[in-house]
Design a protein around this nucleic acid. Sequence first.
DNA 1: CGAGAGGTTGAGCAATCTCAACGGGGGTGG
DNA 2: CCACCCCCGTTGAGATTGCTCAACCTCTCG
Lengths: 229, 229
Amino acid sequence: MALSQSALRAGPVLGSVAERTSTELETLVGIGVTIEAAAGQTILLEGDPCTHCYRVLSGAVRLYKGTADGRRQLIDFLVAGECFGMLGARYSYGVEAITQATLVRASRAAMAAAVREQPAMAERLIERAAAELARAHEQMLLLGRKNAQEKVASLLLDLARRLGSDPARPAFRLPISRQEMADQLGLTIETVSRTITRLKEDRLIALLTPYEIVLSRPAALAALAEGSG
Amino acid sequence: MALSQSALRAGPVLGSVAERTSTELETLVGIGVTIEAAAGQTILLEGDPCTHCYRVLSGAVRLYKGTADGRRQLIDFLVAGECFGMLGARYSYGVEAITQATLVRASRAAMAAAVREQPAMAERLIERAAAELARAHEQMLLLGRKNAQEKVASLLLDLARRLGSDPARPAFRLPISRQEMADQLGLTIETVSRTITRLKEDRLIALLTPYEIVLSRPAALAALAEGSG
DNA sequence: CGAGAGGTTGAGCAATCTCAACGGGGGTGG
DNA sequence: CCACCCCCGTTGAGATTGCTCAACCTCTCG
């Protein structure tokens, strides 16, 4: 089994980025430090000691895991308001900025204190964790039991929904490359490309450019995604 | 794509099982109702209204999801102390007893009240959710990027660890059938069987019976599981 | 205009699935 | 007690999906 084509694609490691003390109450615990990351920048690596938890204030980041020989699996996208790094001695995933992003971080100790003192925060964290878990479970079904067409259809519908596109006739700009789609779906870039071409030939979608997409028949696409198409 | 061989394997739906009010403080919120389920019995179905959360007191249960055409993906095993059903309007998975099992359940409202009143319980729930999430992420890497040998090796090592087998030379009785291994790994039963045969031929494992297994070379198996074998 | 990055397409191949047959062990009924 | 049956695991052969390797295309940027 060869290396994933994305194995060597990591951006520069975060180091000399701008940091300043935050005064916003909207931050994680009110005492965080904000961090700016450029698109593609690595924020932390799988296996780093887990000293802080982070919250995304703006932009988007991705969580990923990899095997020893460089294959890569995208775990999740995080957008404004979402957190990572709440548990464990080491981060079990790497984190990269997808777009220019602002994050705030707080030490694990400060985090634990906040949870103890503010039941409302505890409840929010539990809800968030449960929602993430449900998404992870959905993704496990996709990765384990769906074929390439079903995977791509699922992703396109998910993107349309999350981007707030018109449900009757979703049209939007793909926010991720073919490689990122492949890493998320457990496919190769070629298979993603071929599958999209096939969906286009079948008139389920239309592409104006490789990134401008219209889901011409969302119901049919949904049927395909659920395995009844 | 054909039906999973397990599609029609569901046990009887839980209905007339013994229920009694629990008085144990060890229960979820101290006011739950205990439930007995026989091995193989369905405790709840994917899509049922999510009115209660459950905790496993003894035995083991499995969570699974399925596609419209009957393919099945195992999400997780839960053993004594673990919970499910904490969030969402409907259960996003089905639940079956693997062994004879005892569970306790409490209404979502009681659960929420307990979290508000007991910060310690909130912390435990957050920890548990984060641990589950980490396991889900690991499984996503397995499902998306590992081949059959790596998947089976990963599962065998995971089972050995969770069953408390001697790390130097793990030997144990497999607690799940080939079909359950397949459902967990996103493979077919035949591929699981062939892969185990192959591992046996390569002297990485030994089978006394189809269920009595010895991991003869755990280090080599671990290297295989991580993709560096 | 040349180079590089990303996407698409083609041909062949390998891993896995599908369909089918076979075998052992345990329980059941005669 | 034995024959039968059923469940489960194993094995084989062939089909299929998705991967690998390679070429080509388009667009953007110097």
